[in-house]
Amino acid sequence: MGLSNSIPLSQVKTGEMFQINKIQLEGPLKRRLLDLGFIPGAVVEVLQKSPLGDPVAYRVSNTTIALRKEESLLITGSLIRSEAHE
């Protein structure tokens, strides 16, 4: 998985796996995301959109965390083939 095909988390579809490469956020929100396990290298699974489309629930570090689009747009990385994982 090259860095060239880096996409934001917000574009990842439900059910797909994603590996974080960079968190292009600053300040307290970035620190909060780090604390929740959104760290470079972490694998995130897209679980579920809320009824109105935003926010979206993600599984990270065995917990479920919902993020708004404003945030997931700034977390970039690459898709992982579901076969490749596990």
């Binding site: 929100l29 929740l36 917990t63 479920t64 965390i65 919902a66 708004r68 945030e71």
Partner: peptide, 9 residues
Amino acid sequence: THYTLELPP
């Protein structure tokens, strides 16, 4: 402001 929401099991 931005925020994160945990959905506990």
